[in-house]
Design a protein around this nucleic acid. Structure first.
Length: 404
DNA sequence: CGAGATTCATGTGAAGTATACCTTTAGGCTTAA
DNA sequence: AAGCCTAAAGGTATACTTCACATGAATCTCGTA
């Protein structure tokens, strides 16, 4: 690939493996959602009153990741929005993922973000939270509106900030004169609603829906369908679809994962000038997805998190050389302080670093388990949660990012 | 030898602080009549 | 006098610190067999 130009020329003339890539992309909403017809009909039934400008029952949806919850809701909501537009109804849809860091992960930020989606700007900080509610309500009341508020991964925000926020949201309707809000909560955590104030629970889940995982056969069918749209039949190697499905079925039937796996495998095949997607590419794809996920998470973390993580990697490496793989919060903190000195960063307290370690655990980058070592105190036992082959890459990335 | 007390290193909760950013308000300046 | 700009005042959310207490099993202590 010495000559970039000729590479690019080749690339432009070469036949792509993809007929049309968009069918495998995660934001694609298919016309038909296989094995979810029943749920879609139910959702449609529940939300249909909105087209008469009556507030539908609040809806709560459970199911593991990649079981089509978000997809099904989007599918219905999109069509409701279309019909509403035809009929010139003032119906608005706001779709938010509560997991998005720094966008919708606190009560203030969530309400502010909803307002922004509705075209009402709200500063990122500085206002009292109830003032933000007021602005939001005022904006909504300007003209009679029916708002369908879809809150994806709603369990995340409650985990972070408590269930007060749900109470406030459900209570909002009683304050509104002209407008109405219908809440649609989506949760990956099946246990989630049990830990919520019963009053909130009853009003939030007026209707409930559970999405079961797909099984391997269903996954295969889904994959095959999408693959037909995306590739020529001849390109897909033997057993590719089966293997993708099997991988995903292992992970509680996560369809999103299966589709991503196939897309990435195809991209890799294409980059290798391969004529066919073979089973081998799936393993490589699996690796690449994991790597991208980790790299992506780490890249978006604040500096202190990076330094902490770098310390963890460093300490882990040193201990491995010494053949003692166990290390704890204290070890990390000592090391962390050194790196702060080197990078000219003001060290945080151990209290805070402990919290950061807990948060890194939540992100799945490390595993930190609180253990008691009896006489020798209590601490977090830390192990790396990322595969061996990614560690080096992550380490260099962090080192460069921190200027070490 | 075993039950109960002790101990360690840090977990964890609450309350306080620093920072960044917001709105409101009052004073000072400019401008137009 | 009205209008506009600026700076100060007063207020909030968030990230972090400080303080104080909680934890829980390995180890120690000491009475008992």
């Amino acid at each position: 690939m010495v000559d970039v130009k000729s590479f690019l020329r080749d690339y432009a003339t070469k036949q792509s493996l993809f007929k049309n890539k968009k069918f495998l992309q995660s934001n694609y909403i298919p016309k038909k959602v296989p094995y979810r017809e029943e749920q879609i009909n139910q959702i449609a039934g529940i939300l249909a009153p909105s087209l008469r400008m009556e507030r539908p029952s609040n809806l709560f949806i459970y199911g593991k990741t990649g079981t089509g919850k978000t997809l099904a809701v989007n599918h219905v909501v999109e069509q409701i929005a279309e019909v509403a537009q035809e009929k010139k109804l003032n119906l608005k849809v706001v779709n938010l993922n509560c997991k998005l860091k720094r966008i919708a992960d606190t009560e203030y930020r969530l309400v502010a973000q909803i307002s922004r989606e509705l075209g009402q700007d709200i500063p990122p900080t500085g206002l009292p939270t109830d003032e933000v509610y007021k602005i939001f309500v005022r904006h909504l009341e300007k003209e009679p509106t029916l708002l369908l508020l879809v809150l994806d991964e709603i369990d995340e925000i409650v985990k972070n900030t408590g269930d007060k926020i749900l109470y406030n949201l459900t209570r909002l309707n009683t304050e509104l004169q002209n407008s109405e809000i219908c809440l649609i909560g989506i949760s990956n955590d099946l246990m989630f609603i049990d830990n919520v104030d019963p009053r909130v629970k009853s009003s939030l889940s007026e209707e409930e829906l559970v999405f079961p995982p797909y099984n391997a056969i269903q996954l295969q069918k889904i994959l095959r369908e999408r693959a037909m749209l995306t590739f020529d039949k001849s390109i897909i190697g033997e057993g590719v679809i089966e293997k993708c499905a099997a991988y995903a079925a292992k992970e509680h039937g996560d369809a999103r994962r299966a589709l991503e796996l196939m897309r990435v495998a195809a991209e890799l095949a294409e980059r290798n000038n391969a004529e066919k997607i073979t089973v081998d590419y799936i393993d490589t794809a699996e690796e690449k997805i994991e790597r991208d996920r980790v790299v992506d998470i780490i890249a978006t973390q604040p500096k202190q998190f990076k330094i902490t993580l770098y310390s963890i990697l460093h300490v882990s490496d040193e201990y491995k050389k010494k053949n003692s793989s166990d290390f704890y919060t204290g070890d990390i903190y000592e090391n962390y302080k050194e790196y702060c000195l080197k990078t000219g960063t003001k060290p945080l307290t151990q209290r805070r670093v402990g919290d950061i370690i807990a948060e890194l655990d939540m992100l799945g980058i490390i595993n930190a388990r609180v253990i008691s070592k009896g006489r020798y105190g209590r601490t977090r036992h830390i192990t790396l949660g990322i595969p061996e082959n990614i560690i080096t890459k992550v380490t260099t990335m962090l080192r460069e990012g921190l200027g070490l």
